[in-house]
Design a protein around this nucleic acid. Sequence first.
DNA 1: GCGATCAGCGGCACG
DNA 2: CGTGCCGTTGATCGC
Lengths: 251, 251
Amino acid sequence: MALGLSESLPIIQKAVSNNEMLILIGNCCVEYFGRAASKLAKGDRMLLIKSDKSFAIHQNKYLRPVNYMMDSEIAVKFNSEEECLELTALKRKPKESLKVKFFDINFIQSFKMNDSTDIRLFGSEVELSRQLLEDLSFIEPGLRPFKGEVPFAKGVIDILAEDSKGNLVIVEVKRRKASLDSVSQLRRYKDQLSNMKNKTVRGILLAPEITPNALKMLEEFNLEYFKLDFEISNPKARIKGIQKKQTTLFD
Amino acid sequence: MALGLSESLPIIQKAVSNNEMLILIGNCCVEYFGRAASKLAKGDRMLLIKSDKSFAIHQNKYLRPVNYMMDSEIAVKFNSEEECLELTALKRKPKESLKVKFFDINFIQSFKMNDSTDIRLFGSEVELSRQLLEDLSFIEPGLRPFKGEVPFAKGVIDILAEDSKGNLVIVEVKRRKASLDSVSQLRRYKDQLSNMKNKTVRGILLAPEITPNALKMLEEFNLEYFKLDFEISNPKARIKGIQKKQTTLFD
DNA sequence: GCGATCAGCGGCACG
DNA sequence: CGTGCCGTTGATCGC
């Protein structure tokens, strides 16, 4: 049940101006030029235009669109030479263009989507850090956090703390397995801060796991690793170390 | 035009088993538990299931799905208690679950998508590196590349080269503006290699741009930056420095 | 399978 | 706006 290309034109325009979600499925080819460049030969894909003017071409695989554009200016026209419906998404900065030519349209429809709610996510890194700001003594006795999310010349330090000997301690928190880049990050912060303060600064990497290479590099630069055993899932979630510490108070 | 929830069940099953692309739009709520956890209250969304069993919930904004799962085992059932159609996507490793409850279905349809072609992308980093392997003399006279994509204990060095004085030179290529992490990366490689070879090793960062902080850090660690002026867009694309070098042969 | 890195990363928050 | 960084990052490639 092929649809007329020209009939689709007003449907698209109406959808875009009304901030409805538009779905267009058909045989098309795609060209992108901007930060990179790409060509996609003819094939069946879905074009998805959303209320925020996001413009995405989906193949029948992968989570991510094969081509896309955010905050685009969308234009539609009927290309009589090639007998196709031509949609273009443009962006000024950086200058990018995305052109889709539909030669057949199998399906087109726009949908009014009532959805005011936003997602509530648990277990993010900031959430972890906030909990850790309350108590770091499960790492070692006398380790006292005194500032979180410290904006820095070169980045943001998750937690600044002080150990029992009065040393400054940088704590880098990772919610998943720490890799080389995590260690590099911590090393960078430590370098910077020890230069600024002109005294020894410790760096502790707090993560559920760490790769062997990352651990090796960590030790090489006198940084420390502490396994972070935490539970995600709900607002009651607690870092196990803290929980354990609290219960052992009554031992 | 509300559709019967139970009627949708066979449509979904057929689509999934036939690797067709399934679109389901309606009022739903979503719960995710796995690497993190999230809740999404009732609202209109689109569920998109693709041939590779990717499972994505799209809101009418953003390029990315609000909830999703890759390589999922998909199950459907009619929940008679809550009178909803319940779709679950499960994954073993890491253990994750995604549950969507549809209370109304505004639209459901599956599509056979004929699309064998893959995207051709130009201007990727490996493509750049391959070109640079041919000639690095536009950076400085006598700089000779001798190996690309060098697998390493801790990462992969883009290009290994030797300068006119016989020094080992690590060249890190970035296709976009270099930031602190790029410098950290280069620094990591340089540390490693100079330790291994026990002699001085130079590190050159090759990128179209660099942030001020990154440049500062670069200089701090005796690394070098060279502006990479390149054109993307097509197979004939050339790094301008190289092009210039070649043309100046006839000057 | 894990490890490391790239990506047109996207999206956010802060300066 | 740029800079930096997190993300259920996803996707790729090498070991």
